[in-house]
Design a protein around this nucleic acid. Structure first.
Lengths: 274, 274
DNA sequence: GAGTGGTCTAGACCACTGT
DNA sequence: CAGTGGTCTAGACCACTCC
């Protein structure tokens, strides 16, 4: 209240209010830069700055040479932690049944058949950061597997993830080191089962950050949309960290869902009093 | 490669590369607007646009009238899903022991004593969106509780959350409806126990979005930092949704951590073959 | 052809920081 | 005091969209 807004901030604020009270509802065309400049008696650059602020907030999408529209939030695809258990159950099915779920791992709201998958494997010396998390010495060989899927029509990224496993854990089965065996029926959990490893605990660490302009272009992200970053740590029966998997998701199209069951209280709560 | 960059994009790209190869390491002072304008023979506005792009990516922080520095990522406070179980265990302890954990719920990396807590309670008619999630008719009375903590020195937000509970679930104990009883030893799970409700499952739904300028100011967020949004759904023994709790976290200072234990396979994995 | 956003220039005044 | 970023103006040319 007490603060006086700059001209730009005032215009931004006016427009934001009009978006929020649905004077300009989702999909509506906002006034053009020259219109706003005239209406407020400011230069076009000032009007432009005001509109750019709304883009940065993710409220408005600019369609070059056609105007700016109020963003229509896309439906969010849900990534559910209960999938971890489903994948584990799936990994011990007979091979014919296993195939189904394997690739759906990277699936979004889009049909599997409309995605182009790519897997690239290599062996890298563990960089300091990953070595610290694994608790191993840096430069220890890691199997790095990069998975992407793209929309074949637009070339846009649909999913992007990288997995790291110390080579020593999996080299007993050389087939795991070969990207030509992708897609592997039953996925990583089945691969690990062939070398005697059973994953017993999965930890997901979630943060978010803004994309670089290169990333924004690859994902076809409008400005003002963050990337969710999820690092998944998989532990075996002995509590040893077996795999680190990093994945990125556009925040406007993704919801991460985590289920935590709780142990029952020993007494029925009806009896409890403050 | 094939694409030609605009002058602005080229400058941004050069500076980003210099940040990533540590020519300008964390905390380093970037060249000023006039310096960049001279170096590239462009106007000051063009140099400014290039720098602003780096701010939007969260790489650079502007300190008005002192220059721009490469961002030093702050330490992230971890919010762990294992806290759900700890809180439940805590809620059935004797009152003296219960007090400890209750307020730490909203704690960040900062000491509890350096935070100013505020709780505001009211009863609102359920808006459409929440009514749908609860599966109740809109306008049903909801107890809304808003919790914030602020840094008393700077006035900046440290935590911000809102909880919704259908009034009918808790009105048997009027003390729960009164904000003057905050902080309640043992927190919400103990409050619910006084009306015979035991939470058996918690679901966290996580997304992210950019803050409005008002939010950025309240949290003291540099530009280019998203807000993590976490909606927590708490279910009782019968699977009824009891509470919806919405919380926001600055993505540069927060990591959300979720643990998923997996059930063991019936057979030892050593026997398994592809 | 009129209108749109994309880009860029060359100024200007201001409030504040550092020394 | 010189230097910084904050704000704003009044132009300009471009490529493209839509009618």
């Amino acid at each position: 209240m007490a603060d006086e807004l700059s001209t730009t901030a005032q215009i931004t604020s006016d427009l934001r209010a009009q978006i929020q009270d649905h004077t300009f509802g989702p999909g509506a065309l906002l006034p053009s830069e020259p219109e706003i400049a005239r209406a407020y008696s400011v230069s076009r650059q000032t009007a432009r700055s005001a509109l750019r602020a709304l883009e940065q907030e993710g409220l408005v999408t600019v369609r070059p040479r056609r105007g700016r529209i109020v963003r229509v939030p896309p439906r969010r695809a849900v990534r559910d932690s209960e999938r971890h258990q489903l994948e584990k159950d799936n990994a011990i099915l007979p091979e014919e049944a296993r195939g189904k779920l394997g690739e759906a791992e990277t699936n979004l709201a889009m049909s599997i058949h409309d995605q182009k998958f790519a897997s690239r494997y290599d062996i890298i010396p563990a960089p300091d950061e990953l070595a610290t998390v694994f608790g191993i010495v840096p430069t220890t060989p890691l199997l790095r597997r990069r998975f992407t899927s793209t929309d074949p029509r637009t070339g846009n990224l649909l999913s992007d993830s990288v997995s790291y496993i110390p080579k020593v854990f999996v080299e007993a089965n050389p087939a795991i080191l070969d990207e030509r065996n992708e897609p592997w029926p039953g996925g990583t959990l089945h691969q690990l089962s062939t070398v005697g490893i059973e994953i017993m605990k999965v930890v997901d660490e979630v943060t978010a950050r803004m994309p670089s302009s290169t990333e924004a272009e690859a994902w076809d992200l409008p400005s003002g949309i963050p990337l969710l970053f999820c690092r998944r740590l998989s532990y075996d029966r002995a509590g040893t960290l077996i795999e680190i998997s990093d994945a990125w998701y556009p925040a406007d199209r993704t919801e991460l869902r985590f289920v935590t069951p709780l142990k029952p209280w020993p007494d029925p709560p009806q009896k409890r009093k403050k």
